[in-house]
Design a protein around this nucleic acid. Sequence first.
DNA 1: TGCCTGATTGCCT
DNA 2: GGCAATCAGGCAA
Length: 199
Amino acid sequence: MILSTSFFQQPTRILAQSLLGTYLVHETKEGKTIGKIVETEAYLGSSDPASHTYRGETIRNRAMFGEPGHAYIYFTYGMYYCFNITSAPKGIGEGILIRALEPIEGIEIMEQRRSARSKTKLSPKTLANGPAKLVIAMGITKALYGHKLTEKPLYLLSSDHFSVINEPEIITTTRIGISVAEEMPLRFYIKGNPFVSNM
DNA sequence: TGCCTGATTGCCT
DNA sequence: GGCAATCAGGCAA
């Protein structure tokens, strides 16, 4: 089932965990790619110095202040994009960074997209085990900035679409790659899943 | 395996 | 002008 608007209307920290085990789908002319979300990080608003929204709304972060369940995509380190799902009601700038996917469908397409930009030998494990890697593997571009994630071509499927057994044990840790608010426990991943980053 | 660094551009101070 | 919610490749052990 396609996740609907109400799914995204959960508090950000809860939503970050609810997203684990759901499926991100992108339909392009190259074909359909699907990845299971196995790792997320929550970014809060004015209470979170590590969040892009900490100092208020700007052109760059405006999607985070919009309705929940939309795409917030940002450019970083001069060459990479990262994908977030907006959270919290309109006017509150919160979101969830998708940090890793387990490739499910369209794996050959993902390999083509990734190998075009990396000489390293790719395996299913390294195809989407990082926020910038999964953006490349899924073919997500800046054109999808602000896209409503309950609609094609980019949307989410509930976790029981592929598997009835779904009781992931969730591990909570601190976030990766930030230099402020490093102690906040806002990173979540599925215990033991080999597609999580940094493993 | 693990640490260190260069790449490369746009945003914010 | 500094630095970023990263990644790949190189080198040491």
